[in-house]
């Protein structure tokens, strides 16, 4: 060789140069989410809806159940910013309380869906075998039954309280989540870090909760975020049909149904809840999109 080896370097740590300063993958995802304008606007809007919902627990411009606080079908005015409905109730007040109902339904169903989906999905995905066969069959059967039918039956059986509606909607929408988690479980359990954990003596519970679940959380969060508007819409739909929360509780769906008869005379009665519903659904969908991009592991190894 032309070049003689130089004096041996003093022992240095190979790890003293680290690729790039970063914190956890979660922090990294948050950084990416903040860069997404649309998702950011959506988050701010959802925050606003949440704020309105919280305020309306304690205070609304007018009592929401009292009729004739304004002339019936009153249009937009300074006293009643969004007008009044066919019974002379203040629409803004009812819309604000409707936000409560929508968010409770949306988030409530997703809490149930996530909990049940993780339980069922991870059991099927990790243990495979007969358990997986049974669970997958049940999932497919549920897919086969029209969700409206399931929801109707549940409402008939359980009653029309908000909690019952939440359970009914969750019962019709848990399958996507379970299937997603099952797929994640199946894929992750074959990853080498899971094998390495097993070689290191990790027990099943540890493998499931420390190795598989944290790595499946990204897709689960995205799926749940998309599930929120779907549940809100479903509740509105049920209420529109008169099968949702018991009137006179102001669900956006039943508000729209109320105004439907007088669509020509006072379109604002329908438009106000419809617009609130559309904007909220859109916001959750944009946030879901943003989260998917931010949490997508394919962008970075």
């Amino acid at each position: 060789m032309a070049l003689a080896p130089g004096v041996a370097n003093p022992q240095e740590y190979v790890g003293d140069t680290v690729a790039r300063e970063q914190t956890s993958l979660w922090a990294d995802a948050w950084r990416r989410l903040r860069r997404n304008r649309l998702a950011l606007v959506a988050t701010v809007f959802i925050g606003f809806v949440l704020l309105v919902a919280i305020i309306s627990v304690f205070w609304t411009p007018y009592p929401i159940y009292r009729e004739s606080v304004a002339p019936t079908y009153e249009g937009l005015s300074s006293q009643h910013l969004l007008g009044a409905d066919q019974a002379g109730r203040d629409i803004l007040s009812r819309l604000a309380v409707g936000a409560q109902i929508s968010l409770e339904v949306g988030v409530g169903t997703q809490i149930l869906v996530v909990a049940f989906g993780i339980l069922v999905g991870l059991t099927a995905g990790y243990y495979r075998g007969i358990l997986d066969g049974v669970i997958s069959t049940v999932i497919n059967i549920f897919y086969g039954i029209p969700s409206l039918l399931v929801a109707l039956l549940m409402v008939l059986l359980l009653g029309r309280g908000l909690d019952k509606i939440i359970i009914a909607i969750a019962a019709t929408s848990w399958m996507d989540m379970a299937r997603l988690v099952r797929g994640q479980g199946l894929a992750l359990r074959e990853r080498e870090f899971v094998e390495a954990a097993r070689a290191g003596g990790a027990k099943a519970s540890r493998i499931i909760f420390r190795h598989i679940l944290p790595n499946a959380l990204g897709p689960i969060i995205v799926q749940a975020t998309f599930g929120v508007p779907a549940a809100i819409l479903f509740e509105a739909f049920l209420s529109f049909l008169g099968l949702g929360v018991q009137p006179p509780a102001p669900s956006w769906g039943s508000m729209a149904a109320d105004g439907f008869q007088a669509l020509r005379l006072a379109p604002h009665i329908v438009l106000a809840p419809a617009l609130a519903l559309s904007l909220t659904l859109m916001a959750f969908n944009f946030l879901g999109d943003g989260l998917r991009d931010a949490l997508d592991p394919r962008q970075k190894r």
């Binding site: 956890s24 993958l25 990853r191 080498e192 870090f193 094998e195 390495a196 954990a197 070689a199 290191g200 003596g201 990790a202 540890r206 420390r210 190795h211 944290p214 790595n215 592991p297 190894r301």
Partner: peptide, 25 residues
């Protein structure tokens, strides 16, 4: 009996710190 895996990317849990990974066994 321990195994050292070839793929340095898929063999470490990306959600755990290096200290936790080594401490787990």
């Amino acid at each position: 009996l321990q195994m050292i895996f070839q793929d340095p990317y898929s063999s470490l849990n990306p959600r755990m710190t290096v200290g936790d990974i080594i401490a787990e066994p």
